[in-house]
């Protein structure tokens, strides 16, 4: 079983476009969308939900006003600025650490489970699909990602599947690290813009940090050929193989609008480019 995770550093470089195409190409796989706070893969897969689970990602503090004597100790101790001037919990800033509860001499603070999202197992025409939805403005995305990846792994073992294909989130922080845990290959999708290059550099730092073999795909490779060359040079220096270049194409936009993987779109060039990438990564 091989686990392939698509990441990018910078958002909007074409992770989901590429992963949905792999979904259409690969046989015997389970799909998982690790971008739990702005997931998109489901838009391409038209999933039928089989199972839904609630996800409690952590706790939040609650102040019982009847017991509170307004001493203000909790406000002084909280390092997240989550207790307001009038001694209320700002639920958006509370990290659920429980310091206030431990410190309160009047037992006025309680930690309550916080429903932070839900996750689903679905069927799709490309195979089983595990995905999630973090409630907006919630935290614990890393833990939710760990949970759905475990589920995908259990399905892969149960059904004897060859691949776990994971669509990763942007950035290089905790959600990305959670997505990369256990990956056999990280596929980094970048674009030939200074931002894309800068972010790819940061993404490779993460894959190197976790010693995960990585490969690079340059999307929209023709919008700035000089930058594309610089990316290739930078990758060569780091010993990372550039396994594909996908030109800018309106065909991809049309496919996304039609909610179908671009590999099934109307451009032969795009099809060929993506097929070659899949050949090289599998």
């Amino acid at each position: 079983m091989k686990q392939i995770v698509v990441i990018s550093g910078k958002g909007g470089t074409g992770k989901t476009m590429l992963l949905s195409s792999f979904a259409a190409l690969a046989k015997n796989k389970v799909l998982v969308d690790c971008d739990v706070d702005a997931s998109n893969l489901h838009l391409m897969l038209d999933p039928k939900r089989l199972k839904k689970e609630l996800f409690f990602g952590g706790k939040k503090a609650h102040i019982n006003k009847n017991k509170c004597v307004s001493c203000g100790l909790c406000k002084k101790l909280c390092r997240y600025g989550a207790i307001t001037e009038d001694l209320k919990i700002d639920e958006f800033l509370c990290e659920g650490c429980g310091f206030c509860k431990e410190a309160c001499e009047y037992s006025a603070i309680e930690m309550k489970d916080n429903l932070s999202g839900e996750w689903y197992v679905s069927s799709s025409k490309y195979g089983p699909f595990v995905h999630a939805r973090l409630r907006p403005a919630e935290e614990s995305s890393g833990k939710l990602i760990a949970r759905i990846k475990q589920e995908a792994k259990d399905i892969a073992i149960r059904d004897g599947l060859d691949y776990i294909l994971a669509d990763g989130p942007p950035g290089i922080g905790c959600p990305v690290m959670a997505s990369l845990t256990g990956a056999d290959t990280a596929l980094i999708v970048t674009e030939p813009t200074l931002s894309g290059m800068h972010d790819m550099e940061r993404a490779t730092e993460i894959t190197e940090h976790f010693k995960i073999p990585s490969k690079v795909v340059i999307n929209k490779s023709d919008i700035n050929p000089d930058n594309t060359k610089s990316i290739e040079a930078a990758c060569e220096k780091k010993g990372i193989e550039v396994i594909g270049r996908i030109p800018f194409s309106e065909s991809i936009v049309r496919s996304l609008v039609a909610r179908t993987p671009p590999i099934l779109g109307d451009s032969a060039d795009i099809k060929q480019a993506i097929c070659e990438i899949w050949e090289k990564i599998q």
């Binding site: 706070d37 800033l93 935290e139 959600p175």
Partner: peptide, 14 residues
């Protein structure tokens, strides 16, 4: 602000 809708987004726009 960072992309997404979770904790870092909240920290930035709060």
């Amino acid at each position: 602000a960072p992309p997404g809708t979770s904790c870092q987004f909240v920290s930035a726009v709060h």
